[in-house]
Design a protein around this nucleic acid. Structure first.
Length: 431
RNA sequence: UCCGGCGUAGCUCAAUUGGCAGAGCGGGUGGCUGUUAACCACUAGGUUGUAGGUUCGAGUCCUACCGCCGGAGCCA
């Protein structure tokens, strides 16, 4: 009985006969030789079929097998320095499990739209493997970071009865005859959980119905949001920079191969280390003034502004104390300068823009109630949220990190659509 | 919603001033004992996004529409 092995394990079987199961990635030939590149998800191995070594039937199979046909191959593992894997398989027998007629994704380049129409098949390519393995590592490291610090994972609801910040950018669904909305953030529920458990995080999909057609936007994306009781804005920034550092270091350590595959220059990633530069909004606005970029003091920063500031530093930058008027109702204002909110955005370097948005939350019941009224929000819907300020309110803060933008930055991609297995964009909900 | 760009073979693209619609890849057939996006020869493959207009003649110029891409706003 031959051992069935994964390609990633073949190094342990040098000189031995093994059984591989996989799909044909590519095929080349030369006279009486057939070179089959076979993948099984763990890696790719070149299988060499020599006409003199196999039956006529096996050689025929090796000759005719189509791209992405599934197959079973028995052969001997041989060390070979010409192989990227270090090993290849000298084939003895093979069989086709299922054929693959006219596989649409060929070896030549394709356009993005075509590839996105075939996203279910595109996932089989090596570049997508590298990106999605890095995504996995980022998520793994993010959870590890909070788990090690004894944060409790609290899953927040996806159906919500009302909008946190107005309904225009929310997806509405029919919830047994009443409108319900897909969540745009777990934060408010995270605050309730932080009052119960002290330090928590939530991790789940979020939905924005904004008609954004840019390389940074998805309508469905994943966000990881910690919330910590008794943390002020400064604690929040320390947590954020340590968190991002842990993620970057984990990827550099555990996914070197994938970064190489993507030809990512890791020079700047290797410099990610606390402390990150911190910029008061006023200071950031001053930088923009010197850049001749169109900007009015008091406005929020647009994407070009963020890029400009982000490119001035080698590490991620944290901009804090935004004008209260441009920020959400739940953000606490600085008692020293009440025109500014205790908010912080983290801007990734190399033009990747905002990856984190966070703040210290308003913890005073009456002030918060006033804000809800100022914003014309439905007061009754926020009773439970106001309760958190009625029963033992404490200073607290948190932030949300966008997974796809983080993957995009760390992988050095120019578009977020490749960072999620099945992206949902304004113009795309297939496949 | 606004601004800009692009729609030609299954895919990626070319077609000079408006003058015979082409190449590579992929498919098919044949050849080669070490290929690395293998190579070589042959072969099939087209309502040039749609509708109208200008012209002797439109892939090319004009109008409208459709689709996609990028950017702005909004945000992670």
């Amino acid at each position: 009985m031959v051992d069935k092995v994964y390609i990633s394990e073949t190094g342990d079987y040098e000189g031995r006969e093994v059984l591989l199961e996989g799909w044909l990635y590519n095929k080349r030939s030369s006279g009486k030789l057939r070179f089959l590149l076979v993948r099984d998800g763990t890696d790719i191995i070149q299988c060499v079929v020599f006409k003199g070594d196999v039956t006529e039937q096996t050689f025929e199979i090796a000759d005719k097998i189509q791209q992405e046909a599934s197959c079973r191959i028995i052969g001997t593992v041989k060390k070979d320095d010409r192989s990227p894997l270090g090993y290849e398989l000298q084939v003895k027998e093979m069989e086709i499990i299922a054929s693959s007629e006219d596989y649409p994704i060929t070896k030549k380049e394709h356009g993005v739209d075509f590839l996105m129409d075939h996203r279910h098949l595109w996932l089989r390519s090596t570049r997508q493997h590298a990106i999605l393995r890095i995504r996995h590592e980022i998520i793994r490291a993010a959870r590890e970071f909070f788990d090690r610090r004894d944060f409790v994972l609290i899953d927040t609801p996806i159906f919500t009865p009302n909008a946190a910040e107005g309904t225009t950018n929310l997806f509405e669904t029919d919830y047994f005859g009443s409108p319900a909305y897909l969540t745009q953030s777990g934060q408010l529920y995270g605050e309730a959980a932080a009052m119960a458990f002290g330090k928590i995080y939530c991790f789940g999909p979020t939905f924005r119905a904004e008609k954004s057609k840019t390389r940074r936007h998805l309508t469905e994306f994943w966000m990881i949001e910690p919330e910590v009781a008794f943390n002020d804005l400064n604690d929040n920034m320390v947590l954020a920079e340590e968190f991002v550092t842990h993620i970057v270091k984990s990827v550099l350590k555990n996914r070197k191969r994938e970064l190489d595959k993507l030809e990512r220059d890791t020079t700047l990633l290797e410099k990610v280390e606390p402390p990150f530069p911190r910029l008061h909004y006023k200071k950031a606005a001053e930088i923009l003034k010197n850049c001749e970029e169109d900007f009015t003091f008091g406005d929020d920063f647009g994407a070009p502004h963020e890029t400009l500031i982000g490119e001035k530093y080698e590490k991620p930058v944290m901009i804090h104390h935004y004008p209260a008027g441009v920020k959400a109702f739940y953000m606490k204002r600085d008692p020293e300068e009440p025109e500014f909110a205790l908010a912080v955005d983290m801007i990734a370097p190399e033009g990747y823009g905002e990856i984190i948005g966070g703040s210290q939350r308003e913890d005073d019941h009456d002030v918060l109630l006033g804000r809800i009224r100022e914003h014309n929000l439905p007061e009754e819907a926020f009773q439970w949220y106001l309760d958190l300020r009625k029963y033992g309110s404490v200073p607290h803060s948190g932030f949300g990190l966008g997974i796809e933008r983080t993957v995009s930055w760390i992988c050095g991609l120019k578009h977020v659509r490749e960072t999620i297995p099945f992206p949902r964009l304004m113009q795309r909900i297939y496949p």
